[in-house]
Design a protein around this nucleic acid. Structure first.
Length: 372
RNA sequence: GCGAGAUUGGUGAAGUGGUUAACACGCCGGAUUGUGGCUCCGGUAUGCGUGGGUUCGAUUCCCACAUCUCGCC
């Protein structure tokens, strides 16, 4: 089936929305946070551990899986869910972000993008049609259109022609898309330019996608600019479809963008920060590698996750500084749980129409002096 | 006991009669937003075994002492 979004409630004072999405693998409330599992694994976590932090949809990647093990391997395994033993919904990114992070601008052509395989240097080609075909074989629940994620700063003229091309790619992908068991999202680009965001969003809506993403943010711009980019995108998206802000993020960014009408987020931060020894806490991000935690025999914080229920900062610090994988795993569990719990709290705030107060309180703690 | 060589941060070490004593590791911090776990960026010896001497100036040259290593008795 296609995913279905049901708008349950709009918050009184902001554009925040409480919703529910129905998928092939159950129903989930939004706003929600999707852990990133690029290579068919949320790094260091087992599916059981993901369930235990109350994860809903997880994200995986077309480009990476196509290189290794190859989409045919995944297909022969019976699809991504069976392959990785995840019986929840999966969204696959199209490889569009890799256009931004891995390809040379000169290699972005109308027909598609020429990459150098980041593992062995092999020449690779990814196009709108090919991305859809791969995602089809991977058998994700939600596929993304192939787009160009534009960096910042970018000249108006470049962004304009890039948006036009992204729209043509979206159309081409949709034309070859033929799978009643998978949904397809369009991606709003347009950089920092309001008229291009508007144009892109409206054109995508005309094509009638199953959901809409906002891309091209968090690529070097400052926070107010990023929030504006989101506002000028959600403004033109239909209320009866889900909105997904790609690659964000940071706890404060999640709150800010929920207030701008975003339903779904994903970000590598919780797991990447974990691998580098950082933990989110109510009182801000902490670095467990700091020597002050050497003999801190208390949990990371008052939290319901497995790491906080069973381990101390001192022990996790020891694991991280010793490069033991359990350290990264415990911190990943905590950080993902932190962001998922944040979205749970935001859902309550929407129900109670007090999201502005919630944000103020959150920021007071997060940026406060306590525990620093 | 005699002879030779050595002694520079937490570690391995480079180096020079004249501004801030190289580099690496470690350590101490920081970064990380549609994932390369890679990585990146800062900081880290007021000091060159100890005490004298030569010199305008010594970690560098000279002397004594201490300690270490290797050889000989």
């Amino acid at each position: 089936m296609k995913i279905k979004y049901e708008l349950i409630k709009e918050e009184k004072n902001t554009q925040a929305r409480l919703g529910k999405i129905k998928t092939n693998y159950g129903e989930y409330m939004t706003p929600m946070f999707m852990p990133v599992g690029t290579l068919a694994t949320v790094k260091t976590l087992s599916p059981e551990e993901l369930k235990n932090v109350n994860a809903g949809i997880i994200l995986s990647n077309t480009y990476h899986l196509s290189i290794r093990p190859g989409e045919d391997v995944v297909m022969h395994a019976g699809g991504l869910h069976k392959f990785m033993n995840w019986n929840g919904p999966i969204l696959t990114d199209s490889g569009g972000y890799q256009v931004f992070s891995l390809a040379d601008k000169d290699n972005i052509k109308e027909e598609g993008v020429y990459f150098k395989n980041h593992l062995n240097g092999d020449k690779l080609f990814l196009s709108s049609e090919k991305s859809i075909e791969i995602q089809n074989k991977l058998d994700s629940d939600i596929a993304m259109s192939f787009d160009e994620c534009i960096g910042y700063p970018a000249e108006y003229d470049y962004v304009k022609q890039s948006v036009e091309r992204t729209l043509r790619w979206a159309k081409r992908g949709k034309d070859v898309f033929n799978n009643d068991n998978q949904s397809l999202f369009g991606i709003v680009q347009g950089g920092i330019y309001p008229d291009l965001r508007e144009y892109c969003a409206k054109e995508l809506v005309k094509m009638d996608f199953d959901g809409y993403s906002i891309g091209g943010t968090s690529v070097g711009e400052d926070k107010p600019t990023m929030y504006d980019m989101v506002s000028m995108s959600t403004k033109y998206l239909p209320k009866d479809k889900v909105r997904y802000l790609m690659g964000v993020g940071d706890p404060i960014d999640i709150i800010e963008n929920v207030m701008r009408g975003v339903d779904i987020f994903d970000c590598v931060s919780p797991t990447r920060l974990a691998r580098h020894g950082h933990a989110y806490t109510k009182y801000g991000k902490i670095n467990l590698k700091n020597s002050k935690y050497k003999e801190d025999f208390t949990p990371i914080e008052d939290c319901d996750c497995y790491a906080c229920k069973n381990y101390t900062k001192s022990y996790i610090r020891h694991l991280i500084t010793s490069n033991e994988t359990l350290g990264a795993r415990l911190l990943s569990i905590h950080n993902i749980r932190f962001l998922i719990r944040l979205t749970e709290d935001l859902r309550n705030a929407i129900k109670n129409d007090n999201i502005i107060e919630y944000k103020k309180e959150f920021e007071r703690n997060y940026y406060g002096k306590e525990n620093k």
